[in-house]
């Protein structure tokens, strides 16, 4: 059950090995979260993360192997999660793949695949969980979007375009769920220091997964729908969005 302050007791992390996702799970476990399903592609990696969560004191952690691109597997995840967790309070969507933005490496198939992992699959998962949560009249969908989708840059434009699609889908879904008891929280982090970004040049306003986790807990409490991490990025991007293209192109980072 979600308590009056917005804290969930059970949750599914889709993208079960995501550093940001796991940081959010651990942070929520200091409040009420005690029953978790980690879902993802790599059984061994999931099991390792599950063990880490168990040893950090989370009561019930299990894993579920599913590829976010497989609609059948997502259906299986929904029914399995409800059975294991006795109702799901929280879905945290943290799948993502930076892919590539090099034209020489891109093909129609590659673009479709990057879109599928970053947008199509997550959108399908949100939809499936939203429906089941609306039936119980409560639930929170937390989507890891990215500032990369707010104004798409040359350096990661395929990833950015997919995140833009997911972000817009989540905003629309949030409207569609108004009055259902189910809420959507859209998280727009800037540069987060993780394995995924390791080796890339660090952008200004870089944060750690723990900072994202704190922002998510805060948003669940306040009911804020769109969360920028760090918060200053809301202002920064209000400016960047209207910056003329020749200037935007020359920005570092």
């Amino acid at each position: 059950m979600i308590d009056a302050t917005g804290m969930p007791q059970s949750g599914v992390l889709l993208g079960g090995t995501s550093e940001i996702g796991l940081a959010i799970i651990r942070r929520l476990a200091t409040r009420r979260l005690g029953r978790v399903v980690l879902a993802g592609r790599d059984p061994a990696a999931l099991e390792q993360r599950a063990n880490e969560l168990r040893s950090s004191g989370i009561d019930q952690v299990s894993t579920f192997v599913a590829d976010v691109r497989d609609a059948g597997a997502l259906d299986g995840l929904v029914s399995e999660a409800w059975a294991r967790l006795d109702g799901v309070d929280l879905l945290l969507v943290a799948t993502g793949d930076l892919g590539t933005a090099e034209l020489s490496e891109l093909s129609a198939g590659r673009v479709a695949s990057i879109f599928e992992v970053n947008a199509g699959g997550p959108a399908a998962a949100l939809l499936a969980f939203a429906e089941a949560m609306a039936a119980q009249g409560s639930g929170r969908l937390v989507v890891l979007s990215s500032v990369a989708g707010v104004r798409v840059r040359r350096a990661n434009f395929v990833y950015g375009a997919a995140k833009a699609g997911l972000d817009a889908f989540a905003v629309g879904l949030s409207e569609a769920l108004e009055g259902s008891g189910v809420g959507v929280t859209i998280v727009r982090p800037g540069y987060v220091r993780t394995r995924m970004t390791a080796g890339r040049s660090q952008a200004p306003f870089a944060v750690d997964p723990g900072d994202v986790a704190n922002a998510v807990v805060r948003a669940l409490e306040t009911g804020e729908k769109i969360v920028w991490v760090p918060a200053i990025l809301r202002l920064v991007f209000a400016g960047l969005r209207v910056l003329p293209r020749p200037v935007f192109r020359r920005l570092p980072g």
């Binding site: 476990a29 409040r31 004191g57 009561d59 986790a213 704190n214």
Partner: peptide
């Protein structure tokens, strides 16, 4: 009842840090 496990004992007592180490607020 479900939120507090009123009718049903918790499976085992939860071990939780009292405050979150990551929180600066």
């Amino acid at each position: 009842d479900r939120r507090l496990s009123l009718r049903r004992p918790l499976r085992r007592p939860l071990r939780r840090p009292r405050t979150s180490p990551g929180s600066r607020r």
